[in-house]
Structure formats: structure tokens, C-alpha cells
Design a protein around this nucleic acid. Structure first.
Lengths: 206, 206
DNA sequence: CCTACCGATCGGTAGG
DNA sequence: CCTACCGATCGGTAGG
């Protein structure tokens, strides 16, 4: 309510908190993300941080939203110009691998971390993560179906099976990168994707 | 030091603590495993619990050990009678799937949970988990090499690539079971394994 | 193995 | 957005 802080400035502060929270949570987890530490790192008071959200759970949900936006920006939006079907699916997988490889967040894939952290519990955070995961699976599934209809994937392809296997490839990539810092893992992920989807059309020929 | 508590009884108490700790940690994580909660659930004092380990970190390491023993008992030891090579590898994968499917621990695979929880940090707990993970990969790799030498897997097979893909299948299984309670996931895992290793020898013909 | 205690930190609130 | 504060819980220690 200080006259120096306009609504716009408050919104910017909120965004700063959420962005720092996302970075912190990727390493410490969403439960290990504490208001006190966040406040210290931002040079704010705890009450100043919490005031933007009300409760820790709503802060966690805001961080989940930010992670979803980041993933959308880095993966699906990067390839939105690629035609639907197999080409799009292949481009999505490459963008997904690249996203994990570049490690934009220090703790690796935020959703993998939060999914394993919250999968044994109930509550809105778990529901939000599960919902986003399901949405993403559906996106992949749609492109697989298109590719099958177009004859670019074998007619007998089971979309859910392929989604399952693609998820496995990416989970294994995140695991190898984060736990073993194995820099040959991205290459293995690409090989595994290629085996399932075929070679991508080279950039120059698109 | 109470005369009623022999060394043997102390060891049994220690085991009770570790077992309960393993169950708790599979849901709450190794950091979310608190000495106070463990004490309450066991009807003990905090000091009584901590006395067996000295520090929380050593309690965490004891829980990691117990998880490794459980996994060894449930997966490799169950198939130790199966001949080395492809048959053994196939049996290992089936035991691994079955282990995840039966969900002996309420939070799913302990190592997946702890690996993602600690992969962004340093310290002995992370090192212990990374070491066990590497050991398990090596076991799988050895059987793959044997199978290639015996001509049961294609000559060009890259062992590390196959280990990578098998890990992905199991990580995806744990993910689907825990986050979505998707009971068709074990079937998908089996199909994916079959595609890579071929059909297992039926039980009756072994 | 217990009671009794320590300083630090947790999420959150009151009041401005 | 701040200071000042709340009860609860954290990991850990002293002493028996």
C-alpha cells in the first residue's frame, strides 16, 4: 500500500519472486522452497514475499504455472511453425531434448522433480502437475495419430505406447544428465527417438 | 545402556527405525523424513531414534542401504537361478517391472525419488545413490554383452544404449503408476521390453 | 533408551 | 512493502 509501489511494480515484484522460486525449487523441490530463504535471496522480508500469495501452497502453484509457461515457450512454441504430424512430433522431441540438455534450470526438469516429489500426496499442487502432464501427453498423442493417418508412421502404431516410450527416453535423459552428468546421454536420447520416429528431415530441406 | 536392552535388542530397534524410515522416505523424501515424526510413529523419543545414527545424514545413508537391500532381494536375487545372458536380462526386467507394479513401498521406487531429490546437491547421500545406480547399470550391461556374444542379441547392439532405454522404460513405468495410477503402464513396459529383447522363454520351458 | 533443553527456522498473522 | 511477533517443529546435545 506504499505510494511508491504501483500495481505495475507489485506485479513485477511478484514475477521476480516466482522466477527465483522456480530456480530454487528446481534444486530444492517445491517443499524445500521456503519463504524465508526466498526472502533473503531477494532482499525482502518474509511477509513481503508471502503477501503476494497468501499461503505457501499458492506460491507453489504460481511456480508450477511459471514452469509450465517456460516449458511451453521452450518446446512447443519453438516448433509451432513445423507442420502437424510426424515432422512436428520429431521437432517437438528435438526441442524437448535440447531443453533438457541446455539445463535452463539448475536442477534439471522441474516437472520430473515435482512429479516425483508430490506423486505420493494429494492436493492442488499434485493435481496441477498431473493435469499439465496429461495435457502434454495428449499433444504428443494427437501428432502421433496425425502421422499414422498420413502414413508417416506404421498403421499399427499404438499412440499411447509411443507416448509412453518417448516419455521414458526423456525421463532417462534427465536422470542421466542430473545424476551422472553423462554428456553422452543426449546423443542416446536422439538415437532412441530416431529409432521410433525415423530420421528427421534435415533443416535445409524443410 | 539400560540393562534390559541387549546389543541384540538395540540392533532390532535400529532395524525397526530404518524400515519405517524407508516407508516414510518413499513418500516424503529423504529430506522430508524427520526424526520427530519417525519417533512419534515408533513410540520413541527423538533422542532414542537419533542415538542409533548420530546425525540425520547417517540415518539417511542407513535408509539408502536398506532400499538397496530391498531392491537386491526383490529383483536380482529373485532371478539368480536364471542362466546368464539374454534369459537373465529378460528375467531381470520382468522382476524389475513386477517390483514397481507391486508397489512394496507406498511412494513407488525409492531410488527414483531420492535420485531426483538429491541430484542437484553434493554430499554422501547423493554419492551413495549415484554409486548404486552405476552398479545396477553395470550389471545390466554385463548381461547384454553376454547376450551379444552368445548371438541372442544383434551383433551391433550398443550395451550403453540398451541400458539407457531399459532405464527409460522403468522410469516411465514408475512415473505413470505414481502420478497417474495408470494400471495399463506395466503392460506397456512389458511390450517395450519385449520389442528390445524379444519374447521371454515361457515359464514352463525354462 | 529417556527427559529436558538448545538455537534456528518453519509458515503465517497483526498492524501499520 | 515493513517490523515484530506467534506457536510449532527442526536437528542436535547434555546428562542420566
Amino acid at each position: 500500500m506504499s505510494p511508491r509501489n504501483s500495481v505495475l511494480e507489485a506485479r513485477r515484484t511478484r514475477q521476480r519472486i516466482v522466477e527465483r522460486g522456480l530456480t530454487l525449487a528446481s534444486v530444492e523441490g517445491l517443499e524445500g522452497l521456503t519463504i524465508g530463504r526466498l526472502a533473503t535471496e531477494l532482499g525482502m522480508s518474509k511477509a513481503g514475499v508471502l503477501g503476494h500469495f497468501g499461503t505457501k501452497e499458492r506460491l507453489q502453484l504460481a511456480v508450477v504455472d511459471a514452469a509450465a509457461e517456460m516449458f511451453a515457450r521452450e518446446v512447443p512454441q519453438r516448433v509451432r511453425h513445423v507442420p502437424a504430424g510426424l515432422a512436428h512430433l520429431t521437432a517437438l522431441c528435438e526441442a524437448w531434448i535440447s531443453y533438457l540438455e541446455r539445463a535452463l534450470l539448475p536442477g534439471g526438469c522441474f516437472f520430473t522433480a515435482v512429479a516425483t516429489e508430490f506423486d505420493g500426496r494429494g492436493g492442488p499442487v499434485r493435481d496441477a502437475v498431473a493435469g499439465l502432464d496429461a495435457l502434454w501427453r495428449r499433444d504428443l498423442s494427437i501428432h502421433i495419430r496425425r502421422a499414422v493417418v498420413a502414413g508417416d508412421l506404421p498403421a499399427g502404431t499404438d499412440p499411447d505406447q509411443l507416448v509412453y516410450e518417448l516419455f521414458g527416453i526423456m525421463l532417462a535423459l534427465n536422470h542421466a544428465l542430473q545424476l551422472h552428468r553423462d554428456d553422452r546421454a543426449p546423443e542416446r536420447a536422439r538415437r532412441a527417438v530416431r529409432q521410433r520416429l525415423g530420421s528427421p528431415v534435415p533443416l535445409g530441406e524443410r
